[in-house]
Design a protein around this nucleic acid. Structure first.
Lengths: 238, 238
DNA sequence: CATCATTTGTTGAACATTCATTCAAAATGG
DNA sequence: CCATTTTGAATGAATGTTCAACAAATGATG
């Protein structure tokens, strides 16, 4: 009955919703804009549910409730639960890709800066928060037995792996390192994902800052000429 | 708290039971297996189902069918589906811990050998195969919203993290490295888990051998004095 | 050893619940 | 007034659990 805007969940979700709405619809055309906004609203509610209840406990009813809408609405905007989840994963993959590319562009032309920027981007607040990480992990857990998820998660990796390999090869040239670029790139990207996993679990006292620190120590170890260790002069409290 | 029937047997006795459990008896039904064997049989069937269908699609009926038994049997040996899954995770965690400790013991007293042995153990065939990795990942995906899973997965990490830290600290001493042991240990363990994730996905051409190679390159980068790079003479297949 | 009683393990159908989907009706907006 | 969107109850399928009956092992008794 009351059509007042239902209170958006987190400020974060609201921000993402509005930003995406602007991005996808530069010139709002009434009905269509409303439709897209509603879809994003449902996708955000899906991420919330995945983070809060896990994949296996995420229900259509919970998504609809989370969005403050009625039960049947999801099957109207998305044909089925399966398609809603695929759309959610695609949304997160797109968001990640955009963030990743932006970081790469912003880093300029120096390969060393580029690599560091890509690593740091993985731990940016907008990408790396418990809510999104939990959703990613929920999909990972199902990816093995779902080709569609596997493809979307795989696309996330494969496209970036080549850039990592090229950067490793370039730095190897200029630094005279002994590693194999392909192998080192695999180790690097695996470590980034592993740190995400650790952050998601959240059992230990691993924070975004700690994780980024670990990633940077990896860079200093693998590319000492490009990322020199901080000198003893700086503080190093345990 | 939930101390289900987890017989702390020796590795040999456990292996014998497992072998009996894996055996598929085409003979007529009837009780011809001890309680422990039947439980292991059901746990193995659960791992199969998790690997084949994923967590959310794993049903009691599928587990029973996979074990070649009737529908109601699981609720007899395990009280509920939830407890079956907890027992399965506990079983895998125990198996991993035993394998890990055995590798550490077998490595002798040299810290460098110990660390390398622990890394290599993670990619041993008995532990690191698609079936088990898929099951692990299925639990990871649900761990965020399930304290019990989180505790069991967390125990897997926390106990070993300290050993990693100590080994890193020791090697730092003898090698004069600049890293912070805690941070390097985090990077190392995260990379190992990330490689597992990559292996599980199985999209790229990442094999157990490739993954181990990446882990060893990490060791060579972080501890160059202890794990020197292979000279140009050795093979380096792409 | 034979027979019976008891415990233990197993079955499969019945039951209750949860949940995705459908759809007719109502609401909304142009 | 028409097209579009939303609602909420109805529906049917899937699934975890229960349970009464049954079968096999074990033990007791003569």
């Amino acid at each position: 009955m009351l059509e007042t805007i239902t209170p958006m969940k987190t400020a974060e979700a609201r921000e993402a919703l509005l930003e995406s709405a602007r991005k996808h619809e530069p010139e709002k055309r009434g009905r269509k804009a409303s439709k897209e906004v509603r879809q994003l609203q449902l996708i955000e509610a899906t991420i919330d549910s995945l983070a809060k209840r896990g994949y296996s406990e995420t229900t259509m009813a919970d998504v609809a409730d989370g969005a403050g809408l009625s039960r049947g609405i999801v099957n109207f905007h998305f044909e089925s639960k399966e398609k809603l989840l695929v759309a959610t994963l695609a949304y997160m993959a797109d968001e990640y890709a955009a963030h990743w590319r932006a970081a790469l562009t912003k880093a300029g032309d120096d390969p060393a800066r580029q690599l560091q920027a890509l690593v740091a981007a993985d731990f940016d607040r907008s990408i790396c928060n418990k809510r999104k990480l939990a959703a990613w992990c929920a999909f990972w857990g199902e990816a093995k037995s779902r080709p569609t998820y596997q493809a979307l998660c795989g696309a996330r990796d494969a496209a970036y792996q080549k850039v990592f390999i090229d950067l490793c090869a370039t730095l190897k040239q200029s630094g005279g390192y002994a590693f194999e670029p392909q192998v080192m790139a695999l180790a690097l990207s695996a470590m980034l994902e592993g740190l995400w996993l650790r952050l998601m679990m959240g059992t230990e006292d691993v924070t975004r800052e700690t994780a980024l620190q670990a990633a940077n120590e990896f860079l200093s170890s693998a590319f000492p000429k490009h990322y020199p260790w901080p000198t003893a002069g700086s503080d190093k409290a345990a």
